[in-house]
């Protein structure tokens, strides 16, 4: 599904050059649920952004679904991102002016679906996250946990094969965090590959596999649980 080899990413500001990732290599298989942990500033978000084609690496090779994405132009990358990848952020990042329905509509618009198809999908994912009754509400009218569920619904509406979550529970209390985690696990069971950055060791342990990023590199590759064990959770 995802294969990174010796990915490098450096940011150059006037004074210093930061090496956010150095020789970062990782393989994620179809259907996996991978958690990513590591100290602040170690490069976790940078990794997710490169994986999600939001940023281009300074060097190295990245194959998404076997396709080398380094040679693609912005239009092609955006299209791939739209079709294959769903993003979830710590800050939810819902568009405040748009109601839930229109927020979930955003990726479907860029996908070019017709109005009927979009409506069908929006209603389906809203139901999945249990917010059907609130389709016309604005994000500000929801609790944090509900907002994150909308963000997940928005990420799922295009039926991506690959879900990237950057501290999706970071802004939530433990109860809401657990609900979101359960939702993600449910989605994963239905076949979506998930990579989730988290600071919460308990949540990290619930993934099939946890990787540690330290200083822009993968420090340890280990399986924390067999896929069968997750089903109990």
């Amino acid at each position: 599904m995802l294969k990174m080899h010796n990915i490098r990413k450096s940011y150059r500001t006037d004074t210093i050059e930061t090496h956010a990732l150095r020789d970062f290599s990782l393989e994620v298989n179809e259907g996996e649920f991978v958690s990513v942990t590591g100290p602040s500033g170690s490069g976790k978000t940078t990794f997710l952004n490169i994986a999600g084609l939001l940023e281009t690496p300074t060097g190295g090779q990245y194959l998404l679904d076997g396709e080398d994405v380094s040679s693609l132009n912005d239009n092609q990358r955006s299209r791939l991102r739209n079709e294959k990848i769903g993003f979830i952020f710590q800050g939810f990042n819902l568009i405040p002016d748009l109601n839930l329905f229109d927020n979930i509509d955003v990726p479907l618009r860029y996908r070019g679906f017709n109005a009927k198809e979009r409506k069908k999908r929006i209603e389906k994912v809203l139901e999945q996250v249990g917010l059907s009754a609130r389709a016309r509400h604005l994000p500000a009218q929801l609790s944090g946990g509900q907002q994150q569920r909308v963000a997940i619904a928005r990420a799922l509406a295009g039926e991506p094969r690959f879900l990237l979550a950057d501290e999706p529970t970071g802004n939530l209390d433990s109860l809401m965090a657990r609900q979101v985690m359960e939702l993600l696990e449910f989605i994963n069971e239905w076949g979506t590959t998930i990579v989730m950055v988290t600071h919460d060791p308990d949540l990290a342990r619930r993934a099939h596999r946890n990787i540690q990023v330290v200083d822009g590199q993968v420090s340890d590759l280990q399986r924390t649980a067999a896929p069968t064990a997750v089903e109990i959770a």
Binding site: N75, S78, R79, N82, F87, P107
Partner: peptide
């Protein structure tokens, strides 16, 4: 700009 950032993440190209 944050909204534009979200749209980019959700699949909007620069041109869009």
């Amino acid at each position: 700009a944050p909204e534009a950032g979200v749209r980019r993440a959700l699949g909007a190209s620069r041109n869009a």
